[in-house]
């Protein structure tokens, strides 16, 4: 893969080159490569099981890659893990908070582990508690926190020592929509206020679209495409047609639609048929006629500019949501 030429003063905060990792029969990473520039909010977007978490675990020195190399904040993750650990904050997919301790105690210990002491530590802990809306609950045991509060504490723990690079592994998975919106606001503000490189992994297309400056789409242990969400969508010509089928005859619908010359690609997820066409207005009548001819009743049709769903479909040939559910079952 070709990387864009970088400003000679800018040092890449994260470099991953050909990372491979195998667990038994499962090839979790099959050559992951990407670069994150200093100060960038970067997303690794992919369905469940695509290799996002494994990539993150290699970068934060928890796991050694079988092949390939990676550097974070200028330090090799295999040869200089100590230096990497001092430069990063890591918020794991599963919460790592100590549930029997208070929020303040959790933050204080994390700060001490990173060498903070005394007044500087107390002030930093107070600051983070207030930034993440946890001041009132600071001296309560975490066991009584809501899911959203616990997750915000997780993120705060990753920030105590003002790391250069913050890793957020699926920070909003499992949160209710309201808590997710709160978290998004926090993360957006964080990216603006602290001069920080952030690597976020997510399987929410909307999250990657909203938060990241640039993203890489990961599928089956590889990066399939990298760029800004806008670029990726713009590179797809045409429009996205989404057809809601009245019954579950997805295969028949798929066959009928892909036979049309105006359809660039199509995929079915349950009762939703997604297709990308050259010109939406001109193609929809043809699609509807083909479906009618195949005897597939249609509930509704929507036409839109391509979304990241379509980007994923285009680069992998699969439907994102189907892959996501398959990954969850695996």
């Amino acid at each position: 893969m070709e990387y864009p030429a970088l400003d000679s003063l800018a040092v890449d905060a994260i470099v991953a080159e050909g990372l491979e990792k195998r667990y038994g029969d499962v090839q979790a990473l099959a050559g992951v490569s990407f670069r994150v520039r200093d100060g960038e909010f970067f997303g690794l977007l992919g369905p469940n099981g695509a290799g996002k978490s494994t990539t993150t675990r290699v970068l934060v020195t928890l796991t050694r890659p079988d092949a390939g190399r990676a550097a974070v904040a200028g330090h090799d993750v295999v040869r200089e893990p100590e230096r990497v650990r001092r430069s990063i904050g890591y918020v794991a997919q599963a919460s790592g908070v100590d549930r029997e301790a208070t929020g303040r105690e959790n933050l204080t210990l994390q700060g001490r582990v990173h060498g903070l002491r005394g007044r500087a530590l107390r002030e930093r802990v107070d600051e983070l508690l207030s930034v993440f809306g946890l001041s009132a609950a600071a001296d309560r045991v975490v066991r009584g926190y809501s899911g959203g509060m616990k997750r915000r504490l997780d993120v705060a723990l990753g920030l105590v020592h003002r790391p250069q690079v913050l890793f957020l592994d699926e920070p909003t998975t499992g949160l209710d929509p309201e808590a997710r919106t709160v978290m998004w606001d926090e993360l957006e503000r964080l990216a603006k206020v602290e001069r920080l490189t952030i690597l976020l992994t997510t399987h929410y297309l909307e999250e990657a679209d909203r938060l990241t400056d640039r993203l890489a789409i990961v599928s089956r242990g590889r990066v399939v495409v990298e760029g800004t969400a806008e670029e990726l969508k713009r590179d797809l010509r045409g429009d996205a047609v989404s057809v809601e089928l009245a019954d579950g005859r997805g295969e028949a619908a798929h066959a009928a639609v892909t036979a049309l010359g105006s359809v660039l690609e199509a995929a079915v997820d349950g009762r939703i048929l997604r297709a990308r066409v050259v010109n939406g207005g001109a193609a929809v009548p043809g699609i509807l006629a083909a479906l009618e001819a195949a005897g597939v009743p249609v509930e509704s049709v929507t036409l839109a500019r391509p979304s990241l769903d379509d980007v994923y479909l285009h680069h992998t040939g699969h439907d994102f949501r189907s892959d996501d559910e398959a990954g969850l079952r695996a």
Partner: peptide, 13 residues
Amino acid sequence: DRGVIERFLATPV
């Protein structure tokens, strides 16, 4: 189980 060890392993401890 609670991910506490993993959190510490990614720090200089």
